[in-house]
Every structure is written in C-alpha cells, then in structure tokens.
Nucleic acid binder design. Structure first.
Lengths: 235, 235
DNA sequence: GGCTCGCGGTACGTTCCCGTACAAAAGTAA
DNA sequence: TTACTTTTGTACGGGAACGTACCGCGAGCC
C-alpha cells in the first residue's frame, strides 16, 4: 500500500511511526459518522475509539438538569480517552455534531496495541493531555466570558477542525453546547455578524474573518497547542 | 520497615502494590507544603510531582485578565499530571492553597518508574482520568450554576480532602478560585450560613452539615468516584 | 402549491452578578 | 493601649443573561 494513500486525514494517525500505525491498521474499520450518533454513552462501557477524519464530535457533561459541552474533538485527535487512560467508561456523553467519517478500533484491540508500543501509548496520552487543557480552557471561559466571547471561541475551535468555512449548526444546538438560552445565542451571533466576522443563514454559520473572531473571543481562544511534548519516541 | 508506618496518608501511594511502591520509595522526599507555594508554574518545565498527605493544591487556568480554578488536588492524588501524560509542562498554575505536607519525586525518576511498571503507570493514569472528570464537572458548574451552588460544591470538595471540618480560607481567596467578586462570595456564604450548613469566622469556614451543603450544591457535586477502573494490575 | 414544522428574530420583566466603594470588625505589631 | 492591616459586611446603579412567549419565515413534505 502506497505511503500517500495510507496516511490518514486524521492527524493523530498521520503522525504515528510506520510501526505504530501497523499495529493499529489491521483493526481499523472505516465508518461514516452521522449527526447525533452517540460514540460514548455516559457511564457505559466504551466499545470503540474513533479517529475522526472529517466532522466533529462533542463531549458533553451533564446531570439531566444541567448539560453543556466540555470539549470538541475532530480530525486532530481521537475519542475514547477514558480507555487510553486505563478506564472503560466516562461520565460524559460523546456524540457527533457535524457529520463526517473516520475509522474506529475496538477498545480491546486498542489496549493491546498500546501495551505493545510505548510510543503509540505516548502519542495517545499526549493527545489526552491536550484535550485536558482544552477542557480547562472551557472551564475558564464558562466561568468568566460573555456569551459573545464564548461563541467566538467555539466557532474558532470548530473552524480549526472543519474543512471550509461553514459550520452547519442551528442556534438551538449551539445554545445546548454553551448551556445558555437559544435566544441569547441568536442575539450574540447577530453582534458577531454586525462585526462582519461571520455570516448567518438558516442552520449555517459562515466564518468570514478569523482574526476578527479572535478579537471577539477576547483572550479566551488559544490556538491548538503545537505539539511541544517531550519526545518519547526512542525506537 | 513495618507495613503500617510505611503506608502513606496519600491515597494514591497507599493503594499501590508493594512492588510499585518500592520503585518510588527511594526517590521520595518528604516536604512541607506552604500556603501559596508554587508547585508548577504555567508553561515551565515541571520539576517534581507531589503526593500530598495533608493540605490542598489548586490548579488554576488563566490569561492574566481571567483566572480561575479548574481543579483541586489533595491526599487522594498527585500533582504533575502533565508528566504522567508524557509532557513536561502544563499551561495551568498549580499552588498550595491550604498548607500541609507530603512527599515529592523528581520528574525523571517518576518517568523512569512508570516505564518500569505498567501497573504503576496505570494507577497514575487512573487518577489523571478522574482529575479530568473533575475538570469537566468544574466546566459544567461554571457554566450553569449560581455562586451559592458553586461555593457549596467547592466546600464539599475541599472538605473531602481535608482533616476536620475547617476550611481556612478568606472570602477573597475563594472569589479568586471561583472567578467572581469577593462581595459575591460574602453574600453567598451568608446564605449558606443562614441555612446552617456552615459557620463563618474570620478567615475560616466550618462545615456543619454536609448533606445540607449537598442540597445547596443542587446537583453540581458528585462524590469522588469510587475507583471503578478496569483492573490492569497484572504484575 | 399549500401546509406543516423547525428555525430564527424580537420583546418583557426578572434575577443574578458585576464594578465600585466605604466603613465596621478582628487581628497584629508597637 | 494604640495604630495599622486585613478581612468582612453592606450598599448602589448598571449590565448580562434568564424564562417565557409570540410571530414570521423557509424548507421540505404530501
């Protein structure tokens, strides 16, 4: 199989050494990712880890009354972090928010591969750490930012992970993600539109000006960390 | 060395197998933990991981304008999770909030021990995962709860990790942790005092009624997960 | 080609929390 | 005791977001 076609659009897989990839390859299964598809149910054993190639998954925490998104995963990473960290489940729900496709691996296969290769395990843990940082950052902005700032941050994160400039989501959906009123989202989006950083149409937000969005995010957005981990590869 | 006295008051250490503990033991150094002592500075290489035996450390995220606590670590765990996950630094600050003592280990020794024992690594990763869940939960309550609810949650978490019922902190300090006004904390604490779930005195909050606090937390507090991870010990 | 239903725009009064400010305790040092 | 510092109690006007509600519009369905 030729090298170019073998490289996944998933950045985590694409960055693996050939040997590590070979450990996973036989167990990877290509799957479509449909909107609202549940990848992990809260407190239920996780069956597969997903490597997203296009689309977006949302990690949502919640206690029936309260619910909101604590993290976003796209082609830069993988789902099933609980498994990477030696557990079999997570209290949070994980579902597809923007349709796409990717590959998945059964969790026992994943565990096996990680046991066999420290560098593979290291790569996954490294992503788990950056996801943890994303969650901290979410906690920070939830605690201190306005809806408009939080929306700008969210749009930037989504834009980072999608092809093109369209974010195909309704205000209602965004309000669930941010844990605020739908009407609040509508108003805040209009502010952003008046600043010409986005354009709105039904069920769709188009990012027009990333820098403007960054300004609107007012310090709550941080570019996805450029891998600065201690290299552990020593093979 | 006799078994009773060898068992650390740190729960993570106490739960390790004898073999795993033996890997760490030679490198552990007993240290006092002083208020405001910085265990990890943001984006600087971490030098030691700390196993707290008494006292409380706070993990704070922030961009100079904004700052608030995203997690709390006491005797149930360890600091330096970035290292556990293969990195050498974290964007968050980590400092002592309530004085106490504990042991620490230099990070390269820690890495060495984790390389040698999968079960040791597994134990630490398991804690990292539960800390991650704590952070999600913080993100959730920051986004959806009132000050009074967040305070109740915070007090319960602190109470879980401290000896006795006293939380020796000023309103000012709590306001920094929650990212709200100091005056807001004062008012909210009075509400809780009027409900007789706490008692206030200068620089000190005494927990009187845990169940009442739980009610006041209104669903934002979850008892620290009772270790339900897949057993990985296969030593 | 009319209808239905989901989505988006807008409004009203209310609640929570903010920024700021100042003075009354409660400790601490002299 | 006195003087000083830190912490706490309380107030005020203002702004952000809330719950709720109602209506127009667009897109897909029959």
């Amino acid at each position: 199989m030729n090298r170019t076609s073998a490289v996944s659009k998933n950045r985590l897989l694409a960055a693996l050494s050939r040997a590590d990839l070979a450990l996973l390859q036989p167990h990877l299964e290509r799957v479509p990712l449909k909107v609202r598809q549940v990848l992990e149910a809260p407190n239920k054993p996780i069956k597969h880890s997903y490597f997203i190639e296009s689309g977006l998954a949302s990690i949502v925490a919640g206690n029936s009354h309260r619910r909101l998104e604590v993290g976003l995963i796209g082609r830069e990473g993988m789902t099933g972090l609980a498994v990477v960290m030696g557990n079999d489940r997570s209290p949070n729900e994980n579902f597809i928010q923007v349709a796409g496709e990717g590959t998945r691996i059964a969790v026992d296969r994943l565990r096996g591969a990680m046991q066999k290769s420290r560098s593979l395990e290291g790569a996954f843990l490294n992503f788990a750490h950056s996801f943890m940082n994303q969650t901290s950052s979410t906690a920070l902005s939830n605690g201190t930012a306005t809806i408009e700032e939080r929306l700008a941050r969210w749009l930037l994160m989504a834009h980072d992970r999608l092809d093109g400039d369209e974010v195909p989501l309704t205000h209602e959906f965004l309000s669930l993600m941010l844990g605020v009123r739908r009407a609040g989202v509508t108003v805040a989006l209009h502010f952003l539109e008046r600043k010409a950083v986005i354009r709105l149409s039904r069920g769709r937000i188009v990012v027009m000006d990333r820098d403007g969005l960054r300004t609107s995010a007012n310090g709550t957005y941080h570019a996805p960390e450029v891998e600065k981990r201690v290299t552990r590869q020593r093979r």
